[in-house]
Lab assay of single mutants.
Amino acid sequence: PDDEWKERLREAEEKNNWKLFEELARKAGVSEEKIEEWKRRWS
């Protein structure tokens, strides 16, 4: 299951679909801290 969400995150990233990325990350149990960090790195 871990690989599956990583794959989906990669797809979201490729499409630059931040909303989807964020949603998937939350569902995968990624901390808000980590998500914010990704946001900063991404923008």
Rank of each mutant, 00 (worst) to 15 (best):
K6V: 13
E14C: 12
L20G: 09
L20R: 06
S43R: 11
E4N: 09
V30I: 14
E14S: 11
K15D: 10
W18F: 05
A25L: 14
L9I: 06
W5R: 01
W42V: 04
E11G: 02
D2H: 10
K34W: 14
E7S: 06
G29K: 02
K19F: 11
R10F: 08
D3G: 07
E37Y: 06
E7D: 12
F21A: 04
L24E: 10
E13P: 01
E33G: 05
K6Y: 15
A25D: 00
F21S: 00
P1W: 15
E37N: 03
L24I: 14
E14G: 07
L20S: 06
E36G: 05
D3A: 11
R40H: 11
F21Q: 01
R40G: 12
L20T: 06
K19M: 12
E32N: 08
S31M: 04
W38A: 11
G29M: 01
G29H: 02
W38R: 02
E4S: 10
K34A: 11
R41T: 12
W18D: 00
S31I: 02
E23Y: 11
K34F: 12
R41V: 12
E22Q: 04
D2Y: 13
S31Q: 05
L24K: 02
S43E: 14
K19D: 14
K39N: 03
A25F: 04
F21R: 01
K19P: 15
W18K: 01
R10N: 09
R10S: 07
K15H: 12
K15P: 02
W42N: 04
E22M: 07
E22L: 09
K39M: 07
N17R: 04
E33N: 08
S43L: 13
W18R: 01
N17T: 05
K19T: 13
V30G: 00
W38I: 11
E36M: 12
F21G: 00
L20A: 11
R10A: 09
N16G: 15
P1M: 14
W5Y: 05
K6Q: 14
L20Y: 08
A12E: 05
G29Q: 02
R41S: 14
W42R: 02
A12T: 04
E22P: 00
A25S: 03
E23V: 05
E32R: 06
I35Y: 02
K15Q: 14
K39L: 10
E22Y: 13
K6C: 15
E13A: 15
V30L: 14
E32P: 09
R8N: 09
R8F: 15
L9M: 11
N17A: 05
P1H: 12
N16A: 07
R41D: 13
K34G: 03
W38M: 10
E11P: 01
E33Y: 06
A25T: 00
E33L: 07
D2A: 09
E7F: 04
N17H: 03
R40Q: 13
A28I: 06
E14N: 08
A12V: 04
W42T: 03
K6D: 13
E14L: 14
A28D: 02
L20Q: 11
E23N: 05
R40C: 10
K19I: 12
D3S: 10
N16K: 14
S43I: 13
E4G: 09
A28H: 09
E4I: 10
W38Q: 03
S31Y: 01
K34P: 00
W42H: 06
E22H: 05
K39Q: 04
P1C: 14
L9E: 03
D2P: 12
K34V: 14
E13W: 15
I35M: 04
R40V: 09
R26L: 07
A25H: 01
N17C: 06
R41M: 14
R26V: 03
K15G: 11
I35F: 02
S31T: 09
R26T: 03
N17Q: 09
R10Y: 10
W5D: 04
N16C: 07
G29D: 01
K19S: 12
A12F: 10
E23H: 06
R8V: 15
N16L: 09
E36N: 09
R10V: 08
W18H: 01
E14D: 09
R41F: 12
K15E: 12
R8D: 08
E14A: 13
G29Y: 01
E13R: 15
W42L: 07
K27T: 08
R41Q: 15
K6P: 09
W42C: 11
E36T: 06
E7K: 08
K6T: 14
K34C: 12
R26H: 05
L20P: 03
K6R: 13
N16V: 04
W38N: 01
